[in-house]
Design a protein around this nucleic acid. Structure first.
Length: 588
RNA sequence: GGGGGCGUAGCUCAGUGGAUAGAGCAGCGGUUUUCUAAACCGUUGGUCGCAGGUUCGAGUCCUGCCUCCCCCGCCA
């Protein structure tokens, strides 16, 4: 019998195969394999109950027939998998220590795990759109989520075999540049000799300009003129715009580096400014779009939700908007990158926009016979202020991302020093940097992305419980064991180590084998918090094992057995942390 | 008015129609001559917003209601 990477998936197939051999079963039977409570087994099949009900049969006797047939199959080795029937008619499956051992020998490092996980996506071409900030604005706490969630998802997709392109669709074009350029000119601000924080200056000038535009129509006209000049490629305004973009990009890149955000291409809205005409023409030609109240809009008369909510794809003043560029963008991604799937990582408020976008693309691509990509909007809730309202740039004091990171690192440093009074200063700084930043990221990733949450320093910078430092600590302790024993983490244990024996060894090994089911779940919903929960539980089981079962012992057989478990736990914890965008430490 | 989301322990949150609803924090009580105690073990704590319904089985699905947040034509 093969040692399957993903036992739940294989069992599901084999149960169907067994059922097909039995006259009492038919196609309506779905095994419904799920990970089980460890006290019952590794997996459970829930499907017998509804099936027996529909056939008016006794679930337990139906289950007995199926289990017997399953174990008659050549693919099943009774010394590797045990089945039992429990309760009203559940089938419980338990992987034996022998199976656990063989699996751990086979999937012994990140490469072998990645190779096996690659079958989930099999090279599917996916463009993922994140974090897509707007230029000329400083990053604040609101940018945390798209960065960390987008990064975790793209890494997970890549690990599971997708051919991913991270496309940073920055907001670098639009009406606000008229106001900003007006603001810069009215202050005679020199972009060539920028101050320490030029983005702060740009933001200030935009705010000042925006306030003036609101109260003075004459200034509004001036701002509009600047915008028209920019759109007509006036050299002076284009040069200003380019400098704004360069300043913003430089500042963003610094932040991406700190936050571990990796980007393949940056094709902002400005890139699509000459590509929207084709959109207007095509959508008009196929009568999908029409002029209404001066604007070009798409109606969805046959859609229950949007029948009275059109999608504006060109403003009545002739200018493009979010919808125009998003339509041009998705076409480009399909035509140029051959995207088979496009994933957008943005906040929840944009759900209507993306539903309308997807509806429009569905009709448009259908009529034009363009290759239809899968489209997913991965949305997340808002980070709220103490008042329960969204933290906004304009009102109140937004917490800058930089300040948040600095505070996190400072707090981490205090703890590192406390725990390691004799550590050299540069090492303290390195560890504090990783601990602080990863705590920040993990706090966001470990929550189900679809909820809002209230910002609090203590919450985002928590270092206890289900946090990055807890996981990093588990990793550091494993490294310490191997340092102490002077054994390589990549040592081949196949000759020396035997199957797990103690309660803690077995519990830990079983958890390690749950990884593929976690990938499957996290991928199906693109929710990184499932991976966080798993890693936390894994680290918890490791800590229990570590406490109860000493690794470096006289008995070489016991030591080899436990060292192998440590090495495998380390590899999975490290791989998992890296998927979350967290670089593990060897010491802390 | 239409739509989306949220509501689970004192707090912050997990929970794929499945078995006695779980963690962390906080609280209480333990564990260190032993591989990193940033740890481990034990323990207290529940009207899963309310009311119906579907189901062998509902925190999970459906209907209605309540609280709060968000979106609903020229912002992104």
């Amino acid at each position: 019998m093969d040692i399957w990477f993903h036992p739940a998936k294989e069992l599901n197939l084999l149960l169907k195969k067994a059922a097909a051999n039995l006259p009492d079963f038919d196609n309506s039977f779905d095994p419904m394999i799920r990970p089980a409570d460890p006290k019952f087994g590794d997996f459970q099949a829930n499907g017998i109950l509804p099936f027996a009900k529909s056939k008016k049969a006794n679930p337990r006797s139906v289950a007995e027939l199926l289990v017997k047939e399953l174990h008659n199959l050549d693919e099943i080795d009774d010394t590797l998998i045990e089945s039992s029937i429990a309760g009203p008619g559940f089938i419980n499956f338990k992987l034996t220590p022998k199976f656990l051992h063989k699996w751990l020998l086979k999937y012994n490092n990140a490469d072998s795990l990645k190779e096996a996980a690659g079958t989930f996506y099999n090279g599917k071409k996916i463009v993922i759109d994140y974090p897509s900030p707007n230029t000329a604005k400083q990053m604040h706490v609101g940018h945390l989520r798209p960065m960390v969630i987008g990064e975790a998802i793209q890494r997970l997709l890549r690990f599971c075999g997708a051919n991913v392109i991270c496309d940073n669709h920055i907001g670098d074009w639009g009406t606000n540049f008229g106001i900003l350029i007006y603001g810069i000119k009215s202050e005679n601000y020199n972009l060539d000799t920028p101050t320490e924080n030029p983005l702060e200056d740009l933001e200030r000038m935009y705010k000042a300009g925006s306030a003036k535009v609101k109260e003075n129509p004459a200034i509004a006209d001036l701002a509009r003129e600047e915008l028209v000049k920019l759109q007509n490629a006036d050299p002076e305004n284009m040069s200003l715009w380019q400098k704004i973009t360069d300043i913003s990009t430089a500042a963003f890149e610094k932040m991406y580096k700190i936050m571990g955000v990796t980007i393949d291409v940056t094709l902002g809205e400005s890139f699509y400014r000459d590509k929207v005409e084709r959109i207007y023409k095509e959508l008009s030609d196929i009568s999908l779009a029409q002029i209404d109240k001066g604007a070009l809009v798409v109606f969805f008369k046959d859609d229950e939700k949007f029948k009275e909510q059109p999608f504006i794809i060109r403003k009545s003043d002739g200018a493009s908007n979010y919808a125009s560029t998003d339509l041009a963008t998705i076409l480009y991604r399909v035509e140029h990158f051959n995207a088979e799937e496009v994933i957008y990582v943005t906040d929840a408020r944009q759900q209507d926009h993306f539903q309308q976008l997807f509806l429009t693309v569905g009709k448009w691509f259908g009529i034009k016979k363009y290759k239809m990509p899968d489209m997913r909007h991965v949305w997340f809730g808002t980070i709220l202020g103490e008042d329960g309202k969204a933290i906004k740039t304009k009102s109140g004091e937004p917490i800058r991302l930089k300040a948040l990171i600095d505070e996190a690192v400072l707090r981490a440093k205090k703890i590192v020093l406390e725990k390691n009074p004799d550590m050299p200063a540069d090492e303290v700084q390195n560890i504090a940097q990783t601990v602080g930043v990863s705590a920040l990221k993990y706090a966001d990733l470990s929550q189900n992305r679809s909820g809002d949450y209230v910002f609090s320093w203590d919450k985002l910078l928590a270092f206890d419980g289900n946090t990055a430092p807890y996981l990093l600590y588990a990793v550091a302790r494993i490294h310490s064991i191997f340092r102490k024993a002077q054994i390589s983490l990549d040592k081949d244990f196949s000759a020396e180590a035997s199957a797990p024996e103690t309660e803690q060894e077995i519990a830990l090994a079983r958890k390690l084998l749950a990884l593929p089911s976690v990938f499957e779940l996290a991928l199906s919903e693109l929710r990184p918090h499932y991976l966080c929960t798993y890693l936390f539980e894994l680290a918890g089981l490791y800590s229990s094992f570590y406490n109860a079962n000493k690794v470096i012992v006289e008995d070489t057989a016991v030591m080899a057995r436990r060292l192998m478990l440590c090495a495998r736990t380390l590899r999975i914890l490290e791989a998992g942390l890296r998927l979350l965008g967290i670089e593990p430490l060897e010491k802390m």
